[in-house]
Design a protein around this nucleic acid. Structure first.
Lengths: 124, 124
DNA sequence: GCTTGACTTGGAGTGCGCTCCAAGTCGGAG
DNA sequence: CTCCGACTTGGAGCGCACTCCAAGTCAAGC
């Protein structure tokens, strides 16, 4: 089991050290990250795996507040899987609606782009 | 040519009256909206069409600042189509990268969802 | 033993995109 | 003439998600 400094964890996860501390403070992680005798954080593989899940939720647009709720459910342990599932399904719906909206707006923008390209090609 | 009050324009565009004023102040519109003798804004069809384009750019994630740049180019009139095209193409790239990222993260979340569903179905 | 560099903390600051407030104006209904 | 409701303005405030700062600690190298 490797154990990484905050800088290494930042590199691995694509987050900044600032953000890693912020997530921990804000209750997005399952528990406080272990410390070396120096007091420096040491990230385990499990930590990184969870942070990856957090990153997935965040970069699909889930608000910090909801990630915290999800983390709290997982922290509680077995017995609330239905609730976790509900939360994920609700999020999934939001994301899909959003994807559809962005896609349709992008098509309209593509149409505009085609106009400009058509306008550019013939005229000198 | 119809001409709408700010409340009606808000309803039509899905924005709030606050946001419509804010966009105008911030230079996202092509020109100041016309006024009735009372001083109240009157939105024309052209205004609404442009606001729709702004909405498309915004809801695909283009920052206000870039929408303002695009509006400035259009305001300038003929001659900078290449620049407008460049801006739209750059935006398009960003959006597509983002769509791809969100989609792939969503797949990972779907996998998690499947786990929970599988866990729920068999056990009682 | 001193310096260096990577870390620690609480708390303040930032950027974005609205969102709202207070005070005022206007046109029309009663 | 008075009231109402829809609007006007400049400017303040807000929520979100970081992002940074100052001051301090620690381990290792010279």
């Amino acid at each position: 089991m490797t154990s990484l400094s905050i800088a290494e964890a930042a590199e691995q996860t694509g987050l900044t050290a600032h953000t890693l501390r912020y997530y921990e403070r804000d209750g997005l992680l399952l528990h406080s990250v272990e410390r070396a005798s120096s007091g420096h954080r040491r990230y385990t593989d499990d930590d990184l795996r969870w942070i990856q899940m957090v990153t997935r939720l965040r970069s699909t647009g889930m608000p910090i507040r909801d990630v915290r709720r999800y983390a709290a459910l997982v922290r509680e342990g077995d017995g609330n899987e239905a609730e976790r599932l509900e939360l994920l399904l609700a999020h999934r719906e939001v994301v899909e609606r959003q994807l559809a909206e962005v896609t349709s707006h992008l098509r309209a923008i593509d149409y505009k782009i085609a106009l400009y390209e058509g306008k550019l090609a013939p005229t000198e």
